[in-house]
Amino acid sequence: MTDSELISGLSSGNPEAGRLLVERFQQQVINVCIGLLHNRFDAEDVAQDVFIEAMRNAHRFRGESKISTWLYRIAVNRSLNYLRNNKRQKLMVEIGSVFGLFEGETIRDSREPATNFNQLEAEELKRILKTAIDSLPENQKVAFTLNKFEELSYNEIAEVMETSLSAVESLIHRAKRNLQKKLKHYFNP
């Protein structure tokens, strides 16, 4: 099934088209969400919403870009919205915890206990890199993640982010510079 057939199938409410869309793009969408959220459960939750939005709004897809680009765009927007809401929610949980609300509820942390020193060090380095990426400005973070983890070309990133090629180049360059600065103290022995 070609992209246009898939879209017309989705627009007409064909369930097979929906199943095919999910099968074909599931990994890409979930991985973008994981790249931005760093939490598998949250990423799957957001990815489900991405497909729901795509299926509901398939009739609006004009076919000017690839379906994958369109899905990446929805995934990025949804993930960023989720992060913004989550920030607010974390703040409210913290306010609530001051008054003794949400007893037993802690901010989720995907870290698992490490079993030996090497694993501990690897986990620690991963956490440091994750924190450094998370602390980048939103646009730099999106551009860097799409380029490094999804291995999208600068052109594709420009399409997903609806910006120019030179802007993407600049964003990725600045992201790498910022990461270098942030990681300097941690990665230098």
């Binding site: 999910v22 599931q26 994981i34 760093h38 598998r40 690897a122 986990e123 983890f149 941690y186 990665f187």
Partner: peptide
Amino acid sequence: ERYSSALYELAGERQLTNDPFFYDRII
């Protein structure tokens, strides 16, 4: 070495196979 290790660990969180029940959960 440290950067490569961290990147590799971070990339390890990615999903590499399709979840067969994902579509059903979406519906």
